[in-house]
Amino acid sequence: MSRIRDNYENSRAAKFEAWLRGDYDPMSEGMEISVPKTDGSDDEIDPRAGLVISDALYDRHTNKALKRSGYVYRVLSVVLCLVMISVLLWMVQFLPKFGQPDNPANNEVSARYIEKGVEETGAVNFVTGMILDYRAFDTFGESCVLFIATICVQILLRIDKDDMTPATFRRRKESETDRLLEPKNDIILQRVSVVLVPFLFIFGIYIILNGHLSPGGGFSGGAVIGAGLILYLCSFGYKQTERFFTIRTFRIVSLVALITYCLAKSYSFYTGANHLESHIPLGTPGNILSSGLILVLNICVGSVVACTMYAFYTLFRKGDF
């Protein structure tokens, strides 16, 4: 009998029970990946320093009310998720069938995008024509999402040089030690990236410039260039990249690109809404220099995205450029 009970400790049923109680989570073990050692010198901020309140209030084993509410919450949310999945699956059978030409989605809207897309926008790629001309307001909103995300990441992670509060001081110290690992001067990585990075850049620029002719566009090309920059940074370190890319570059490029985008789109919206002629030539469809504003917008989006991706990486790594 006792043997069985020993096994029960490790059995799935016990784990399930423990999970319901809320003190064991089978999905997420090891969330404290490595608890940092607290050395005595680091006495500035310990969030729990001077804590006198008893832990029992928050311990699920001793605080019955907390335990019960946690239990109810878990069971309810599991039930909610299961109900939602089954309702959605059940509903799927009532939807229009997959891949049929007479589905409601294939209506006059997409027909016009295809029929007249080339003559109205000049873009051979109908998707690009649609997102940068017919539904350009959405796409402008999308660029603003990216912009505001950068702002939020900067708020959280940017460390200013003249900021001397203890918390930022500690963070800067940490990021400096983090930087010591970099560059490792890994010969394989450096050789590979010497070959790879130019190709990545050229490929990214190709995707951006051909956004209206072939698959791709500003966003995917910008992401490729950003990935190239990150690879270069990983293999050669900050000293090398800071020669051509600092926070100043980032600010200027993204500011100029976004303002261009904003003004160009405002002009196009204004002329469109007031039924004015927009004096922008569409060019011959199929050429690089065609499709009016779309090429300019793609370049703007591409440069913003490339800078943003690189900025995310550096801000994450050391809170600075």
């Binding site: 809207v109 109205e120 017919y134 539904r135 350009a136 307001f137 196009s268 469109g272 809404a273």
Partner: peptide
């Protein structure tokens, strides 16, 4: 109704 672009209701914003 104000067009955001050159195209009317079911096509443009």
């Amino acid at each position: 109704t104000y067009l955001m672009g050159h195209f009317p209701a079911p096509w443009g914003n």
